[in-house]
Amino acid sequence: MPLVEFTALLVLATAMSFTPGPNTTLSTALAANRGLPAAMRFVVAVPVGWSLLLLLCAAGLGAAVVAVPPLRWAIKALGIGYLLWLAFKLAQSPRLGEADASRLSVGFWQGVALQFVNIKAWLLALTIVAGWIIGKDDGAARLGIVLPVMLVFAFTSNLTYAALGALLRHWLARGRRLLWFNRAMAAVLVATALWMVAA
């Protein structure tokens, strides 16, 4: 892969991975509510799920999703519904003691599955497959470069946001700060869902 293309990939990966979205919002909220160790299952699940999505898009699933509007709409509807459900659960955790597994928990497999209804993840996977892999003579070699790079970015961005949430944990324990933090994070998820409706 030429250096100019690799540099463009790094710029895209940075912009898409480190800007707020469903994954980074949940990483922050999980760590703020339940601590960094509890958030790590989700932090690890994001790159695993996204890698599976990228591989499936490279194998042709992306083209099928683009070509079949009902499939696109189903993915979008599931994604919107799941984000709204997570926002509802998040908005209901007013104190650290109440942010237990019954209220706010996104496990490893849920985190993997979330990538398949995350429009931002689909946009990134489809963009990378179309721009860096499909139609190139060295497509398989390019996939071998792109996949580990994106794994690192997905893990690092979510770990960074989770670490931020964990750093805020002690401060959020006072008064009603956690309630307002959770409502703000829920609002980000709702805004993402609204963006998905408009997209």
Score class of each variant (00 low, 15 high):
residue 3 L to I: 15
residue 4 V to H: 11
residue 9 L to G: 06
residue 10 L to H: 09
residue 22 P to D: 00
residue 23 N to Q: 10
residue 24 T to P: 04
residue 28 T to H: 07
residue 30 L to N: 03
residue 30 L to M: 04
residue 31 A to W: 04
residue 32 A to K: 11
residue 32 A to I: 10
residue 33 N to C: 00
residue 35 G to E: 04
residue 36 L to G: 05
residue 37 P to R: 05
residue 37 P to F: 01
residue 39 A to M: 09
residue 39 A to S: 14
residue 41 R to A: 14
residue 41 R to T: 11
residue 41 R to Q: 13
residue 44 V to W: 11
residue 44 V to N: 03
residue 45 A to L: 11
residue 46 V to Y: 09
residue 48 V to S: 13
residue 48 V to W: 09
residue 49 G to S: 11
residue 52 L to M: 15
residue 53 L to R: 10
residue 53 L to I: 09
residue 55 L to H: 07
residue 55 L to Y: 05
residue 59 A to P: 12
residue 62 G to R: 07
residue 68 V to P: 04
residue 68 V to G: 02
residue 69 P to M: 05
residue 71 L to F: 09
residue 73 W to G: 00
residue 74 A to S: 13
residue 75 I to K: 12
residue 75 I to C: 03
residue 78 L to I: 14
residue 78 L to M: 15
residue 80 I to M: 08
residue 80 I to Q: 04
residue 80 I to R: 10
residue 81 G to A: 15
residue 88 F to L: 02
residue 92 Q to W: 12
residue 92 Q to F: 02
residue 96 L to H: 14
residue 96 L to G: 13
residue 97 G to V: 04
residue 98 E to P: 00
residue 99 A to W: 10
residue 101 A to C: 03
residue 103 R to K: 09
residue 103 R to S: 02
residue 104 L to P: 02
residue 104 L to K: 05
residue 105 S to E: 06
residue 106 V to P: 00
residue 109 W to G: 14
residue 109 W to D: 09
residue 109 W to V: 15
residue 110 Q to R: 12
residue 110 Q to M: 06
residue 112 V to C: 04
residue 114 L to P: 09
residue 117 V to H: 05
residue 120 K to T: 00
residue 121 A to W: 03
residue 122 W to G: 02
residue 123 L to P: 08
residue 124 L to H: 04
residue 125 A to H: 07
residue 125 A to K: 04
residue 127 T to A: 10
residue 131 G to H: 06
residue 132 W to Y: 13
residue 133 I to A: 08
residue 136 K to T: 12
residue 136 K to I: 06
residue 137 D to I: 12
residue 139 G to F: 07
residue 140 A to L: 14
residue 141 A to K: 06
residue 141 A to F: 07
residue 142 R to E: 10
residue 142 R to S: 12
residue 145 I to G: 06
residue 145 I to N: 00
residue 147 L to T: 14
residue 149 V to Q: 00
residue 152 V to Y: 10
residue 153 F to C: 04
residue 155 F to V: 06
residue 156 T to H: 01
residue 156 T to P: 09
residue 157 S to R: 00
residue 158 N to S: 10
residue 159 L to D: 06
residue 163 A to M: 11
residue 169 R to H: 07
residue 170 H to P: 01
residue 172 L to M: 01
residue 174 R to Y: 05
residue 180 W to C: 05
residue 186 A to L: 00
residue 188 V to S: 02
residue 193 A to K: 00
residue 193 A to H: 01
residue 194 L to D: 01
